[in-house]
Every structure is written in C-alpha cells, then in structure tokens.
Nucleic acid binder design. Structure first.
Length: 665
DNA sequence: AGCACGCCGACT
DNA sequence: GTCGGCGTGCTC
C-alpha cells in the first residue's frame, strides 16, 4: 500500500465527494495543507470542507495537480480518514467508466466496491497480526491444459465455456458441481502464474462450492466477498485484496469491483442468473462491469455456465468472446411427451415419470423440480384437466378462498367460467407448489423420504440415500454422488411466464437441474413439446439461442440493442428525450403512463419511456440522458421548496440502463 | 441538500 | 431609496 502516489509537493488535490447528488459527481479541487503534504496519497479517504467552512464532507483523493482551473480560492483538505489508499487507480477508472455507461454516479459504484472502515481491523492488518489463511496455502501446480488456459487469460483472452454436468467428489470427501472444480482450477492456475483472479458467482451456495474446491487444492487464502460476512470480515478481506500480492477473490456480484494486484482474469459463473444484476443505482449487471474491467485492465474473462446467456451468445456471435469448442459432458435427457400419454396428469406427474422416479429411488436420491413454493393452488378444468385461464386477461386462476376462484393477475372472479378446450364448466383445484407436491408424493410414494427445498428453506446438500427431493427452480440441493433421476415438472407453466427471456430462463433452470444428476443418471422433462423443450432435450440450446437472438435483432429487443428506461413527470421525461434528438441508431417507445400504486407506491401522473440504442451510441446516449438528469436535479431544489420536506420529488427523472425487465408485463 | 445571490414589488 | 419576496444556480 506504500506505493500509492503521493502529493510530492503538488499543491492541489482532486477529490471525488461522497454524494448522492448527480450534479456533484465530478472532481473538486482542494489545497494540500503543509501539515498533510507528506502523508496525503492517491486513493485515500479524506474529510473536506464543503458548502461552508465548517460543514465537512467525505471523499476520495483521485489525483494531484500543480494548479487548479477553479476560479475561486481553494479550501484545504481537512483530515485524512485512513492512511490506507482504499481506492486503487484501477478501481477508480472502472467505477468512472461503469457509472458513465449506466448514467449513474461513480460514488454509487464505489459504495459497492469499498466497505466501511474498521479501525480495529486496520490496526491488525498493519501490525501483520491479521489472520491470513493464505500463509498456509500449498503451491499449486496446474496441469498443462490449465496452465495454457491461465496463460491465455492473462493475455486478455475472453472465453465462454459450457461447463460439464454432474457433481464431483473432492479429495476432502466433499461433493461439488464439476463446474465449481473447473472454475477453481482455472483460478488457481491464474494465481500460480503470479496474477490475481476474481471469481464471481451468483449466490452463497455457489460460493461455498468454489470455496470447497479451492480449499481441497490447498488454497484457503482466498478473499471472500459475501453477503453473510460481518463488516469486519468484509473489511479484513478488502485489505488483503489491497495487498501488493496476487490473490484469489471469490464473491458475489460486488466482487467484480474488488481491488486486485496484477489482475489476470475475471471468472464468472452462470451470468444469466438474475442475482448478478445489481439492485442498487445505477443497476449495473456484474457481467457488464466485468466486461468493462477486463477491457480496461487487459485481464482475461471467462464466462462459465451450463446454459449460455443471450448476452454472452451475442458476444460470441460478434467474435468478441471465444466459445469453447469441445463439447462438455451432459446428462441424458428424456423428453416425455405428456400430451400423448392418456390421463398423464391424473396425479402430479405423468405415469412414465413416476416410473422413472420409482426406478431412481431404488438406488439413490431423486430430484423433482417444481415452479413455485408452498401450495400454489391453481384451477384446472374438471373435465379435460387443462389449466384454467381468466376470461378478462388470460392470467392463471387461483383460489384465495377455497370456494371461489379468482384471477391471480387482475383479481377478476371466475364466475360463469367455460373451458375453451372442451367446453367444461367445472373448475377443479390443484396444488402445484413444492409443499403441496411433497404431500402428494408422500402418499404416491409411501415409505419414501420426501425432502423439501425452496427459496425460504433452502437445503444445500443431501446425502446419497434414496430420497425424493422436491425443490423450486434454483433451490435444488446438491446430492452426494448426484441424483439418479431429475424430473422437471411445470414446464408449460415456466415457459408461460410472460417475460422476454422466458425461454432462456427455462433453459438455464433445466440445465442447472440436469447438471445435478449422477453421470449415469437421467433427466426427464415432462412436457407437450415446443421449440425450447426440443432444444433442451436434444442438447441444441445454443442453436435455439442463436435463432432467438436473430428474432430479437429484427424486433430491436435487447440484447441486440441496449435499452434505457426514462421515468418521471411527463415534462421531465419529454425534456430528457429531447436531448436525444438527431442521434442515429436511437429510438424510443412511449412515454406511456406508469401504473400508479405498484411496488413502491408510485404516485399517479408519472410516465415512462423506453429508449433503444445501438451499442456504439451507448456512451453518447448515456451522456445526454445524464445531462438531462443533472439539469433536472439542479433545478429541483427551487421547485421542491414550499412542498412538504422529507419525501423526494416524485416527478424527478430516473434513469435505468439495461434493465432486464422493461419489456415484461 | 442548503445557502447565497439577484431581480422585481411594497414599504419607511 | 431599500427591505425582502422567492426563483436560480453553485457548492472546490
């Protein structure tokens, strides 16, 4: 840390202030006072006077200069908060570029990148008494193939890898997905080459698997970035990442912003998982941040997944990312055509799937993936068993009270319902949630151990003994040795989710579940068919994705174009859109009224426009919309005055770039 | 966000 | 003339 650039006699310090105000998102010049001249360094957190002599604000020193362009007299830097230069030049450049690309403030990115300081932890670290598990790491000797991969990555290669299915047993006896072992080896090989590696995974269950795989190879000296950590743990890890030593950083979406000495590669697992989309402003997806960082730092990039995201496929088609050529090992998939099996849905599962379950249960655990947790009673036609749909909006009909069916989407009661398929008039209740399914299985497969795992009560692992594991998509436990059988239910329902990415999401859910099967296990998908199901069953998901991308390209849907939603009062939105006039490759949908109420209690009268633009114009679109936002925010204080304080001005402009959900109903 | 500056209407 | 209303813009 001693290498951070010092003031070196230069009298001006350039500081980025901590502020949520967009109009303050630029550097402010301060005088370097004589008494701090010897200590002040780039990256340090400082306290500076702001707005008046005695009001202080925090910020980071971004650089030094001989003179300032500011007309007035410079106020002096008041204090150095910590001697540790927390903000490395590399992370600063990243934060600035990522914020600019997303129409946001660099400070918002830095909040994700830098944990709050803990004096105790800092003292321990400085004294060298901090716990450093890396001290006991065994040197790793990468296999030839791994060394070659690490070399390519360190040279800046960008790769898309389809990971093999199946779990793998570590030397420690622990089971992890083969993908985790593969990713761990790649990280270790990069590290063995004297470079840092950042491994980004969606959630803590993934993190645990990679951590176990690294530890089994003798590497426990990782830096973890994990939502389960206390702030002290997080800061201790942060300081270790800051050390001038190559590290392996392993963490969730904010790990892409971790400092790293000689960054060799960013490795990302399952970038299609929505958890990698940052929910805080400026809502930058970890994949996009990784792409920017790799480009800036010259580091390599590896996207690994069981099912490729549309975004990565687009980059592969452009030749920006290179796809792995050798086909990965894949679980055998049986498409059980539910539509040709008479009375297929008499029980919860079609009869042949029930047979596969019974067969699997003779040797080990069986996984059943369902769409929703709990009971989720839905209405079906009493005559033909078809899913009942609302007459008004075609939404699914649920039962809020046991007797009366009502639409889940619009609330319309299902009186005088008539089945469009067979003309039946009688609604029947059927439970499809995980708990309800588990109850049914306890009866249908009497004497079998039935285990539940869903978002609220996730189970990370199950043993190799026979058990029927009912899990919601994404919450499937890892089974020791793998599942004998993986059954995918509710296929039509999942495909019917009205999002632009339904097909892509389904492939990801199914592929990730199929990957949990034993090498000689089997995956059964119970469905009437359709292109997505066929693509999955035949292992041609990439082909399907390419045709999907071609369709989206024709319609100007993301990711073939970028999008930004512009929300606010009608006047504000119109003003923002006007700044885009004359830009080629840019159009917009709307503005359309935003439905009032909703999640955050949206007040009435607000509108939203969706701006679509080619990637090449992204920087200019972001710059102009950001300009409109700054102008709106700057004028807002006067307009707000007189109104009740506390509540933010609802008609204020809000920008959101690359939102996955803008085209969903 | 807050606070200063400045440009028009009512006042000692 | 000058006090003070609030709209406008800046904060190193």
């Amino acid at each position: 840390m001693g290498e951070a650039e010092a003031a070196n006699g230069r009298p001006v310090a350039r500081v980025l202030l901590d502020s949520a105000l967009p109009q303050l998102d630029h550097l402010f010049d301060y005088a370097v006072p004589g008494e701090l001249a010897g200590e002040l360094r780039v990256g340090q957190r400082v306290r500076v006077p702001f707005r008046s002599r005695d009001r202080k604000s925090f910020g980071y020193v971004i650089g030094f200069a001989e003179h300032s362009d500011f007309g007035g007299e410079l106020a002096p830097v008041a204090d150095i908060v910590t001697p540790v230069p927390q903000l490395t030049p590399e992370v600063w450049r990243l934060a600035r570029a990522v914020a600019d690309r997303a129409g946001g403030s660099a400070g918002d990115i830095l909040r994700l990148a830098i944990p709050t300081r803990q004096v105790r932890i800092e003292k321990q670290h400085a004294a060298g008494t901090a716990d450093d598990p890396g001290a006991h790491d065994r040197p790793y000797a990468p296999a030839q193939e791994e060394a070659r991969l690490a070399e390519l990555l360190a040279e800046g290669e960008r790769l898309a890898l389809t990971a093999s299915h199946g779990p793998i047993r570590l030397e420690t006896g622990e089971w992890v997905g083969s993908w985790a072992e593969q990713l761990a080896r790649a990280a270790l090989a990069v590290h063995a080459g004297g470079r840092s590696a950042i491994v980004v995974v969606p959630d803590y269950r993934d993190l645990d698997q990679v951590r176990d795989a690294l530890a089994a190879r003798g590497h426990a000296g990782i830096v973890r970035v994990d939502s389960r950590q206390s702030n002290a743990e997080r800061y201790a890890g942060f300081l270790r990442a800051l050390d001038p030593v190559p590290r392996i950083v392993l963490g969730n979406r904010s790990a892409v912003y971790a400092p790293a000495h000689r960054l060799g590669a960013i490795l990302m697992w399952d970038d299609g998982d929505p958890v990698l989309a940052e929910p805080l402003t400026p809502y930058v997806h970890a994949r996009d941040a990784a792409l920017v960082r790799a480009e800036q730092s010259g580091a390599g990039l590896l996207f690994s997944a069981h099912s490729r995201s549309a975004e990565v496929e687009r980059l592969v088609m452009l030749g920006y990312v290179k796809a792995q050529v050798n086909p990965p090992r894949r679980t055998r998939v049986l498409h059980a055509d539910a539509s040709v099996v008479p009375d297929a849905f008499a029980g919860r599962v079609p009869e042949f799937a029930a047979r596969a379950i019974r067969e699997g249960l003779r040797h080990g655990p069986v996984l059943v993936q369902v769409a929703t947790p709990g009971y989720a009673p839905v209405a079906v036609c009493g005559e033909c068993g078809d899913l009942a749909r609302c007459g008004a909006c075609a939404g699914p009909i649920g039962f809020r009270t046991a007797a009366r069916g009502a639409c889940r989407w619009c609330g319309e009661f299902a009186t005088d319902w008539r089945c469009p398929t067979c003309g039946g008039r009688h609604l029947e209740q059927r439970g499809t949630g995980s708990e309800r399914t588990a109850e049914q299985f306890e009866r249908q497969f009497a004497g079998t151990r039935v285990l539940l795992s869903d978002g609220e009560h996730p189970r990370e692992r199950v043993d190799a003994r026979p058990a029927l594991v009912v899990a919601t998509r994404g919450a499937e436990p890892l089974a020791a040795g793998g599942y004998r059988t993986v059954v995918l239910l509710d296929v039509e329902r999942l495909l019917g989710i009205e999002t632009l990415r339904a097909g892509e999401d389904c492939l990801r859910w199914w592929e990730n579940a199929a990957a949990l099967a034993a090498p000689d296990g089997v995956c059964v998908i119970a469905s009437g068919g359709g292109p997505v199901v066929r693509a999955f069953a035949t292992g041609r998901a990439d082909e399907w994705l390419r045709s999907e991308l071609r369709d989206r390209h024709a319609l100007r849907y993301p990711p073939s174009v970028r999008v930004a939603s512009v929300t606010g009062g009608p006047v504000e939105v119109e003003r923002a859109l006007a700044t885009l006039d004359g830009l080629p490759g840019v159009d917009h949908l709307g503005p359309a009224p935003l439905p009032p109420g909703g999640r955050a209690g949206t007040p009435p009268g607000l509108v939203r426009a969706i701006v679509r633009f080619d990637y090449g114009h992204g920087a200019e679109v972001a710059r102009r919309l950001r300009g409109a936002l700054v102008a709106d925010a700057a004028g807002s204080s006067s307009r707000t005055r007189g109104k009740q304080p506390g509540r933010a001005r609802p008609e204020a402009l809000r920008l959101r770039f690359d939102d996955r959900g803008v085209f969903d109903s």
